[in-house]
C-alpha cells in the first residue's frame, strides 16, 4: 500500500507541476500576444499551442492511469478530476492567446488601445491568481479571482460601445481585430473562472458556477 501511495503522490505532484507549467505558459503568451513592443511570431504561437496540447494530453494520460491503477478517493480523486479540467481550460486559454497573436501579428494599431492593454494585464493577473489559488488549495482566493472576471466583461462591453459609437471610428479591419481581441481576452477570463470553480471543488468538494453571484455567495459561506 505504501508503494501505491507513494506512486499516487508522485503522479499527483507531476500533474500539479504540469498544470503550473501550463499556467506559466498562458501568462507568458497573454503578455506577448498583445505586447505593445512587439508580439510573438506566428511560429512561436503555434509552438506554444502545440506544447499546451502536449502537456494537456500528458496530464489526461497520467490521470487515466491513476484512475485505473491507483483508485484515488476523496481529495486525491478530486485532485485528479480537477487537474484534467484545469488542463483543458488552460489549453483553451493558450488557443485564445494564439488567436490574439494572429490577429495582431502584423498590425500595431490595435495593440495601442489602452483598454485592451488593461484587459491584457487583468487577464494575466487573473491567470496568475488562479494558479496561486490552485497551488495553495485556497478556495477563498479562487472565489475572489473568479469575481474579477466582471472587469473583463465590462471592459469588452465598453470597448465595443465606444468603438461602435465614436465619431472617429477606425477602419473596419482594425475595428474587427480590436473586437475579436477583446473577445479572446474576455474568454480567457471565463476560463479562469472555470479553473477557479475546479480549485474550489478540489479544496471543498463543492461544485458550483462561480460566475453567478448567488453561487459565489453560497460557496463563500460554505468555504468560510
Amino acid at each position: 500500500m505504501q508503494k501505491s501511495r507513494s506512486a499516487l503522490d508522485h503522479d499527483l505532484t507531476q500533474n500539479r507541476e504540469d498544470i503550473l507549467r501550463m499556467g506559466s505558459m498562458v501568462e507568458s503568451l497573454i503578455h506577448w500576444s498583445l505586447n505593445s513592443e512587439g508580439v510573438v511570431s506566428i511560429g512561436q504561437v503555434t509552438e506554444g499551442a502545440q506544447r499546451g496540447t502536449t502537456i494537456r494530453e500528458r496530464i489526461e494520460k497520467r490521470s487515466l492511469q491513476m484512475l485505473a491503477t491507483q483508485h484515488p478517493a476523496a481529495r486525491d480523486l478530486r485532485c485528479v478530476i480537477a487537474a484534467m479540467h484545469i488542463a483543458r481550460e488552460l489549453e483553451r486559454s493558450v488557443h485564445h492567446c494564439s488567436g490574439i497573436a494572429r490577429l495582431n501579428a502584423h498590425d500595431e494599431e490595435v495593440r495601442r488601445y489602452a483598454i485592451l492593454q488593461h484587459m491584457r494585464e487583468h487577464a494575466m493577473t487573473m491567470t496568475h491568481s488562479s494558479m496561486d489559488a490552485y497551488v495553495r488549495g485556497d478556495a477563498k482566493l479562487a472565489l475572489e479571482t473568479a469575481a474579477r472576471d466582471e472587469v473583463l466583461d465590462e471592459s469588452r462591453t465598453l470597448l465595443m460601445r465606444t468603438m461602435l459609437t465614436t465619431d472617429s471610428q477606425p477602419a473596419a479591419p482594425v475595428l474587427l481585430r480590436a473586437i475579436w481581441t477583446a473577445h479572446n481576452l474576455e474568454r480567457i477570463g471565463d476560463r479562469v473562472v472555470n479553473i477557479c470553480e475546479r480549485v474550489v471543488f478540489e479544496a471543498t468538494g463543492h461544485l458550483s458556477d462561480a460566475s453567478l453571484p448567488a453561487s459565489r455567495r453560497w460557496m463563500e459561506n460554505t468555504t468560510a
Binding site: M1, R5, A73, A74, R75, L77, R78
Partner: peptide
C-alpha cells in the same frame, strides 16, 4: 464518503494514507 469525507481519519483511510 469517498469523494468528500468529513472526517480527516476517513479521508486518510480511503486515500490509503495509513500504516
Amino acid at each position: 464518503l469517498f469523494t468528500t469525507p468529513q472526517d480527516k481519519r476517513t479521508e486518510d483511510y480511503v486515500s490509503g494514507r495509513f500504516g
